[in-house]
């Protein structure tokens, strides 16, 4: 089908008037929102409000110990017996000593079926967006990707100083990762738990991905 490529490209070239075309100014970088110098407290308040609006919950923790205590109370409240986590510096600090027998470190040896049997996943987030209540996660491996989708509950853990006002403010960091030639797999911007309104436009959570989502931001 190499010819298909050449024929399509040739048709495009012909349709656009050949190789030499009217010069057109390349589009600049769009300005989405003006810079927002809000302090971290104000950003977190906005993040919390926006995440609640999409049925997620933001938790501000003063330390990994504080986050661990909150995680333990969630595990008790929702009777999570099998919790999987993705090893990462901050996540490790939060789950170390959690005192739950079924806490498991998930890695490349896990099958999708095993990941699907977890009650909850504790995973790292790279950066966070206040005006949409979003978390951006980077996943190179398949099992890392599945941890965000398969368990019914998801806890994303990150640093408060990675909270940006909005997508535009965070985008230079995202673009830099994206431009790195060694990047593989996916970036996902997660804004609340999985949802659908496909039946009579009535909102229902947890259609395929997690039904519950918490974002822990640690000072």
């Amino acid at each position: 089908m190499t010819n298909a490529r050449e024929r399509i490209l040739s048709r495009i070239e012909q349709a656009l008037g050949g190789k030499v075309r009217e010069p057109m100014e390349p589009p600049g970088i769009p300005e989405i929102w003006p810079p927002d110098p809000s302090p971290p407290e104000a950003l977190f308040a906005r993040f919390e409000r926006e995440l609640a609006a999409v049925h997620g919950e933001a938790v501000r923790a003063s330390s990994p110990d504080h986050a661990r205590a909150r995680l333990r109370s969630l595990a008790d409240q929702f009777r999570w017996h099998r919790i999987g986590y993705r090893a990462e510096e901050l996540v490790n600090k939060v789950v170390d000593g959690l005192g739950i027998g079924q806490l498991r470190r998930v890695d490349e040896n896990w099958t999708p079926e095993q990941v699907a049997e977890l009650d909850a996943a504790v995973v790292p987030g790279e950066l966070f967006l206040a005006d949409t209540g979003s978390a951006l996660v980077l996943c190179r491996h398949r099992w890392e990707r599945l941890l965000y989708y398969l368990p019914p509950s998801c806890v994303i853990v990150g640093h408060l100083d990675r909270l940006y006002a909005h997508l535009a403010a965070a985008w230079s960091a995202v673009a830099a990762w994206s431009q790195d030639r060694s990047t593989r797999g996916e970036f996902v911007i997660i804004t609340g738990p999985s949802r659908t309104s496909d039946i009579e436009k009535v909102l229902t959570l947890g259609v395929h991905g997690p039904k519950q989502l918490w974002v822990f931001l640690i000072d």
Partner: peptide, 10 residues
């Protein structure tokens, strides 16, 4: 404001 999941696959 944003869809629940925005995937960028590299």
């Amino acid at each position: 404001k944003l869809t629940t999941y925005t995937h960028i696959i590299h």
